[in-house]
């Protein structure tokens, strides 16, 4: 089992490292990731949502639906814990 998982791990690592070869360097300001969608968030968040914290404005507004999902995740985790563990004492 250990050997098997070691092999899987090494394989996965190999794939990941292979993918790393074409990645832009770390902290490069000109990566496509920072070129396509995010500039609008940075430049227009203030005028569109009147919020200084861009992360908050993206979290709460541009991608607010994700946050609803996130809250639902938390909610369902709470419900899950209750469902799994909660038991009433026999009277």
């Amino acid at each position: 089992m250990r050997i098997l998982s070691l092999i899987i791990v090494i394989l996965t690592a190999a794939v990941l490292i292979y993918g790393t070869l074409d990645m832009p360097d770390c902290a490069n300001p000109d990566t496509p990731a920072s070129q396509h969608v995010s500039p609008r968030y940075v430049t227009r968040a203030m005028e569109e949502t009147a919020t200084h914290n861009i992360v908050t404005s993206v979290l709460g507004d541009y991608r607010g639906y994700d946050t609803l999902g996130e809250t639902t995740v938390i909610f369902s985790a709470g419900m899950a814990c209750i469902l799994i563990l909660r038991k009433r004492r026999r009277q």
């Binding site: 009147a50 919020t51 404005s57 507004d61 607010g64 609803l68 809250t71 938390i74 909610f75 709470g78």
Partner: peptide, 24 residues
């Protein structure tokens, strides 16, 4: 209005997260 809306949802998230954390 958007700013206020964000505030509103933050409050909602906060309440839920608090309650859920305590309940877990």
């Amino acid at each position: 209005a958007r700013s206020l809306g964000i505030l509103g949802i933050e409050i909602g998230v906060g309440i839920t997260v608090m309650a859920v954390m305590v309940s877990i």
